[in-house]
């Protein structure tokens, strides 16, 4: 046993400084996709929407006018839009992509008669979480995770939260086996018919106040399985959701940002229809 302790000590510290310092791209993979206004035109919008496997990029089908509807909550990071239309779509490497309102993941871009891009219709700023609730959870947080029909990708990344690279516990955040001790319900997957009951029972068994987080494209929008007749999702049709973490799957740091965002320990950064914020 002493050899294991020596092994652990000799290995040194690998833990990320996130969220104090953010190293963009540290995890080697994008967190989600952002629209670049300068490269956008109706033809590109139409072509991109036909390549998008989910409803993340959709248009009304007109080549000359109309609008582009973008939804990062449905983006499964297939990479087609950013690879084929790099001037109009770009991958976001900052892991801070979680938002507290579903609308923040959506943006609509429309063109007028002269094919000029009309001002972006960003959704109104959503109100922040109730201050009192988030203050309650600022110090220690216990998570009850429910897989409501995921592919195991999200679970795999959730398991990586406990690896030394992220080390969730250093921030006072823990997974708990019992809903009675849980502050936050973290849901992954499309919410299948068979998992709806267990999910709602878990939520009911948690004491109030409680938070709900939708992690991954499936929980946010049913992602790749939006046409399956066997889901009751997305999650926010069943429960009020306090934070949305886009990704397929969300990276460990994106998950961590979402958890901190839900309890008011981190701020929102991502907007679907805005240019890259400073310093990101």
């Amino acid at each position: 046993m002493s050899r294991w302790i020596a092994k652990g000590l000799k290995g040194g510290i690998h833990t990320t400084r996130f969220p104090e310092t953010v190293t963009t791209g540290e995890e080697g993979a994008p967190s989600t996709v952002r629209v670049r206004l300068q490269g956008l035109n109706p033809a590109v919008a139409l072509a991109a929407s036909s390549r998008c496997p989910t409803s993340a990029i959709s248009t009304d089908g007109s080549e000359t006018a109309g609008e582009l509807r973008f939804d990062a909550g449905a983006c499964v990071l297939c990479g087609r839009c950013s690879r084929e239309f790099p001037s109009a779509f770009t991958q976001v490497r900052d892991p801070r992509v979680a938002v507290v309102s579903r609308d923040r993941l959506r943006a609509t871009f429309s063109w007028d008669e002269e094919h000029e891009l009309a001002p972006v219709s960003l959704q109104a700023t959503a109100q922040l979480l109730q201050q009192a609730t988030s203050r309650l959870f600022r110090h220690s947080l216990h998570i009850r995770h429910v897989d409501a029909g995921s592919c195991n990708g999200c679970e795999s990344e959730l398991q990586m939260l406990s690896s030394p690279y992220v080390d969730l516990q250093r921030l006072g955040i823990f997974f708990t086996p019992t809903p009675r001790h849980a502050d936050v319900l973290l849901v992954t997957g499309v919410v299948t018919h068979s998992m709806t009951g267990p999910l709602l029972e878990t939520y009911a068994a948690m004491p109030s106040p409680k938070l709900v987080i939708a992690a991954g494209a499936c929980a946010i929008s049913c992602g790749s399985f939006e046409n399956s007749s066997l889901t009751n999702g997305p999650l926010d049709r069943l429960l009020a959701v306090d934070a949305y973490i886009p990704g397929c799957p969300p990276t460990p740091q994106a998950l961590l940002h979402g958890l901190l965002l839900a309890v008011g320990r981190a701020g929102e950064r991502y907007r679907a229809g805005q240019e890259e914020p400073d310093g990101a």
Partner: peptide, 16 residues
């Protein structure tokens, strides 16, 4: 996983 992300642009090698 990071090496996968670096090479293929996706930690679980989707979309390649």
């Amino acid at each position: 996983l990071r090496a996968c992300g670096g090479i293929a642009g996706h930690r679980y090698l989707r979309g390649v």
